[in-house]
Write a protein that binds this DNA or RNA. Structure first.
Lengths: 338, 338
DNA sequence: CATCAATTTGACATCGATGTCAGACATCGG
DNA sequence: CCGATGTCTGACATCGATGTCAAATTGATG
């Protein structure tokens, strides 16, 4: 007999399938000795409930959808990893659904996944978690939704995020603490909502320390290492060049670092460089780049926690659950005292 | 009415549910006009078959499992992306299952996914596709399995891969064609099966061109950019230093490139550098690194194709389907004539 | 000990699709 | 015009679990 069903267990234990079902789902109203017996038989037969039958008859699918834009990015990979771990712990499964907002008919694709798989919830990664049209689809389907690191929190979703502003502020304070006063800042792209918050944190720290920000030292990049190199050239060519450069993400920081090397500017002796995200690129060069660890995996795992929480599920759409996870400065070799 | 079922469609079209089922699944024996009518109604009602009901009654689940070791790596992300696209085209869904071979009980985890979700097939990414114990679990479950870029092809699985040896040979020939004779080679870690094949290709090209390989110019790294930098130092300090360095992967090539910059060795004027994989890191620096594009996404998509192919599925385990996908040299700025 | 409430248990319908099989209908040759 | 063959179509059982509800059992109480 290849596949063990609930009937097999029931027969062997001498009870009804329904009782086995009760034991499996941890419901009340089963005598302790019966419960134990059933559990023993379950273990013996290595019985595993058929997820399909289960979700067909009950209202839950034990399936969460992870909706992402660009599944290839390292960011998405970390988020997914966290979600996967969260699901595993709670015996849920994760279905990854790429969403290409540029493709016509993406809305139907999404609707299709939701209704065909009867998803129990959706985790939405940036940047598409800021897409109103997508949120509308979830809301319309009444699907509990949790956004990871969104820029705004729609009323119909839970959110899990980190404090970009505060983290940038702390990083800046760390640089100031090292004695730096002329600090260059490489902004991220405008459409990325985190960019603004990071810059805000930078400025706030400078202001609090009463250090003037030289606007010539603030330049805008697009999160690519390419612009990091270009803007690095620009900043380092300044007559009174900065002693530290804070880039809004790690790729750009890497670009700055490479440029410094190219010009024989010793890091961190002559120049401190730091980034944001703790992306793989922050470890690609030597010295490795000081950065802010964004708890990507933890955020995703927390999103799973929220989604499987019955209290949250009850309020369709699941407003009201908002979590802010702690970040962490990762101090590495690319920063030092002036 | 929120959820449209097959009965609703049947009622509206004035036929039986079974006929609707036939139309949906593209079965024969339906009069053309009936078929058309049903399709019209399906579209009107925006009907989507419930995947659970479908797989409960039929023997198929329309679900494929992607088994990966480290879901965070860029490699895995590309593979997953390809698999996702392949699934989408064929209205399958993908369930990502991380496998931690270090964790006790991983075998039961895997068995659990297979039997609870009634997976239709497994795609296994490197490096765990070379794990005999894992393969044994799939074989035992009779699950059709396709390995992506394995080092060996077990008799019970299909495989999709690229020709590492040939690609490395072509890259070397390209360098030779540019006039390079002293070519450094950075080997990959021994446990990575592709490493040996890449080195083999390098040596074969050198041999064919009757250029002696200076063993002092052949050094072993571990695929990290860190060792790339260290070994770069070593190679560039050689009395008669190489005019070109071929690293077995892009991270190491990036390390070499950074080291060259640090020493003021112009790339590609004084030194050509190339890597392997077309990883993001190959684009992280400037000039961007010449490399070999490994068709990761295409391999995964091909794996899906094989898995959903009925012919393959019939032979349990699915021996006999082996695909070799074409690679591509990506010529960028880091290589040039001597 | 009878009665009633609370607890435990199982019979049966159900979720939404597909597989099986038999019946209805059309076509064709003799 | 008949029977044989082949093409459509639908009734019904089924997949494997859970929800509902009533029956059986237990325990408490007067």
């Amino acid at each position: 007999m290849s596949i063990v069903t609930i009937k097999d267990v029931a027969a062997r234990a001498g009870v009804s399938p329904k009782t086995v079902s009760r034991v499996i789902n941890g419901e009340a109203h089963v005598r302790p000795e019966v419960r134990e017996l059933v559990q023993k038989v379950v273990a013996e037969l290595d019985y595993r409930p058929n997820a399909f039958a289960r979700s067909l008859s009950s209202t839950r699918s034990y399936l969460l959808g992870l909706f992402i834009d660009d599944p290839v990015s390292g960011y998405a990979a970390d988020v997914q990893h966290g979600a996967l771990i969260g699901c595993r712990e709670r015996s849920y499964h994760l279905v990854v659904e790429p969403v290409d907002l540029a493709a016509p008919g993406w809305e139907n694709q999404v609707r299709g996944s939701i209704s065909a798989l009867r998803l129990d919830g959706a985790i939405v990664a940036p940047p598409i978690c800021d897409e109103a049209a997508l949120m509308a689809v979830f809301a319309e389907a009444g699907l509990p939704t949790v956004l990871v690191a969104p820029s705004v929190a729609p009323p119909t979703s839970g959110t899990v995020r980190m404090d970009d502003r505060l983290a940038a502020q702390e990083m800046t304070e760390y640089l100031l603490g090292l004695g730096h006063r002329r600090i260059g800042f490489v902004q991220g792209p405008i459409r990325h909502s985190a960019s603004a918050r990071r810059e805000e944190g930078f400025r706030r720290a400078m202001e609090k320390a009463a250090v003037a920000v030289d606007e010539a030292c603030v330049v805008r990049g697009d999160f690519s290492s390419r612009t990091g190199m270009e803007l690095g050239e620009k900043l380092l060519a300044l007559p009174d060049r900065p002693t530290a450069i804070f880039a809004s993400n790690d790729d750009m920081a890497l670009g700055v670092l490479i440029t410094a090397m190219k010009h024989g500017i010793a890091v961190p002796e002559k120049l401190s460089v730091c980034g944001f995200d703790d992306a793989p690129s922050s470890r690609a060069a030597w010295p490795q780049v000081t950065t802010v660890r964004q708890p990507k995996a933890e955020m995703a795992a927390a999103a799973v926690d929220i989604l499987v929480n019955p209290q949250f599920r009850r309020k369709a759409g699941g407003e009201g659950s908002h979590l802010m996870l702690p970040h962490e400065l990762v101090l590495r070799g690319s920063t030092g005292p002036i």
